[in-house]
Design a protein around this nucleic acid. Structure first.
Length: 485
DNA sequence: GCATGATCATGC
DNA sequence: GCATGATCATGC
């Protein structure tokens, strides 16, 4: 098609959006078909060449989902994908993103993946400022085209486009993203590009982006090669964008900070919690009018949300950033009472996984934690000590946890050994706490009869990965463990 | 006192 | 009914 006859004004974002919205309800197959019809009406195109295009697309279709975006670019907007740092519609300053969403079992909708914006060029990015960065050049105005991911469809060309909308991050989010950007840049300047992790930051993450697991890049301040990474809006952030900007609906979350205070969210949160340092759980309950006679198990977590000004237990910033609040109790003898549990795994699923893309590995890679620490005083009362944001250090995850995970997989694959003592208590050969500094596997179920199926058909009590209490203790800052007075 | 297995309790 | 966070019970 001739450039003059484009059906939209490529210099005008609103015109591009309006044209994109005609995609709603179409599958990628429809888009290709429409293109063929258009081309065949145009006498310049031989029917043969049309089939050639179809063939090429089909051949490339297994190489990744990137080419769903390419179909929209070439066969709907009629332009070739660019490879420079300019937005796709450079004259309008609009970056095109074609991205999947999914409908969950409970009917809610979420982004299926993080939104990758642009590769991180370790050797040069540290010289950039956020406002003028290649990242922001692309991310400040995006046309988001969402299609519904559906596991049951064999061909991804049958996926249906449901939403098309321009999106710019709101001001308060940009402040958080600037800080995220600074955190990532600082790590590169510190010669730690190889230790970057998505859990380091809140909305904007440094996500792995390698064609193979061995792929490595140079970094400017250290000889250790680093995994290639890209700037990406986290999955949690994109789920929020989907449900609050793309699909019209009501925002049900409460904010922690006002727009003016957004830049260093973490500092704000830890300072606010620190104000209540030294108060007992009972005192805090009284202060926030919580029922401390009945004291539900979750009382400490409720206290944290009240301190942050949240009435319920859903803070918007934490939902967007995938921050998980964990309360920790330290005993008089300076030990953490309990190990930290995580969601159960299914025996038949874990044996199909690879560590690099495993559920538990990804969970730890992508989650940022807020530890809120209480310590027992001489009277046995729990006293608030403060809080700390944390995500698992790269080496602990990729070495220690990896070992535990791989042993778990192999034990389950090669038939789990179950020995029963005379009391009917069962012991297995899954990785124990004593075997690893960081992590272990233990039952986590309603009771012994609460089971999942093993690959060999036996039913066995649900298990999960735990982080060792001794390890968590080691990770806490001194000010949270010991009274400085 | 700690490691390991087992289970409780709340909220959705 | 289940996931998740929290805790108990036992034996070495």
């Amino acid at each position: 098609m001739d450039k003059k006859s484009l059906k939209y004004d490529k210099t005008d974002p609103l015109s591009i959006e309006e044209y994109a919205q005609k995609l709603i309800g179409k599958t990628f197959n429809d888009v290709i078909e429409d293109y063929y019809i258009e081309e065949s009406m145009n006498s310049a195109a031989e029917p043969e060449s049309v089939y050639k295009i179809a063939n090429t697309i089909e051949k490339n279709s297994n190489k990744g989902k990137g080419n769903l975006g390419q179909i929209i670019e070439e066969h709907y907007f009629y332009y070739k994908p660019n490879i420079d740092s300019n937005p796709d519609f450079s004259e309008a300053g609009v970056e095109l993103k074609v991205t999947p969403y999914k409908i969950n079992k409970n009917g809610s909708k979420s982004a299926k993946e993080r939104l990758v914006i642009t590769m991180i060029d370790f050797m040069n990015v540290y010289k950039e400022e956020f406002d003028k960065s290649g990242l922001w050049n692309k991310a400040k105005l995006m046309l988001l085209i969402y299609y519904l991911y559906n596991q049951n469809l064999i061909s991804k060309f049958d996926y249906r486009i449901d939403y098309a909308k321009l999106f710019s991050p709101p001001k308060e989010d940009i402040e958080v993203m600037k800080h995220d950007f600074d955190v990532i840049i600082q790590k590169i300047k510190d010669g730690k590009a190889h230790e970057l992790s998505e859990g380091d930051t809140l909305y904007l993450g440094a996500c792995p982006k390698a064609s193979t697991s061995k792929d490595r890049r140079r970094q400017p301040f250290n000889y250790t090669p680093a995994k290639p990474r890209a700037f990406a809006f986290k999955n949690s952030y994109m789920t929020y964008v989907l449900n609050n900007y793309i699909i019209p609906g009501k925002n049900t979350y409460e904010n922690i900070v006002s727009k003016e205070e957004a830049y260093n969210l973490e500092e704000y949160v830890t300072n606010r919690i620190r104000r209540y340092k030294g108060k007992t759980v009972d005192e805090l309950c009284e202060l926030f009018e919580l029922d401390y006679v009945k004291k539900p198990k979750s009382i400490q977590s409720l206290i944290v949300y009240r301190i942050l000004g949240i009435k319920g237990n859903q803070a918007e910033e934490f939902v967007k950033a995938n921050v998980v609040v964990k309360t920790i109790r330290i005993t008089k003898t300076n030990k953490i009472k309990e190990n930290m549990s995580f969601p159960n795994f299914k025996f038949k699923e874990i044996i199909k996984e690879d560590w690099d893309d495993s559920e538990f590995g990804n969970y730890l890679r992508e989650t940022r934690f807020l530890f809120v620490v209480f310590k027992e005083n001489a009277n046995g009362e729990l006293v608030l000590m403060g809080s700390q944001f944390w995500n698992i250090p790269y080496d602990d995850l990729e070495n220690e946890v990896r070992l535990v995970w791989e042993k778990t997989k192999s034990v389950i694959e090669n038939e789990l050994e179950i020995k029963v003592n005379d009391k009917g208590i069962r012991f297995t050969n899954l990785p124990k706490q004593s075997e690893n500094r960081v992590s272990h596997v233990r039952p986590h179920a309603r009771n012994a009869a609460d089971t999942y199926e093993l690959p060999d058909g036996r039913l066995f009590t649900k298990q999960c990965f735990w982080l060792n209490n001794t390890y968590i203790y080691e990770q806490l800052k001194d000010e949270l463990k010991f009274d400085q007075n």
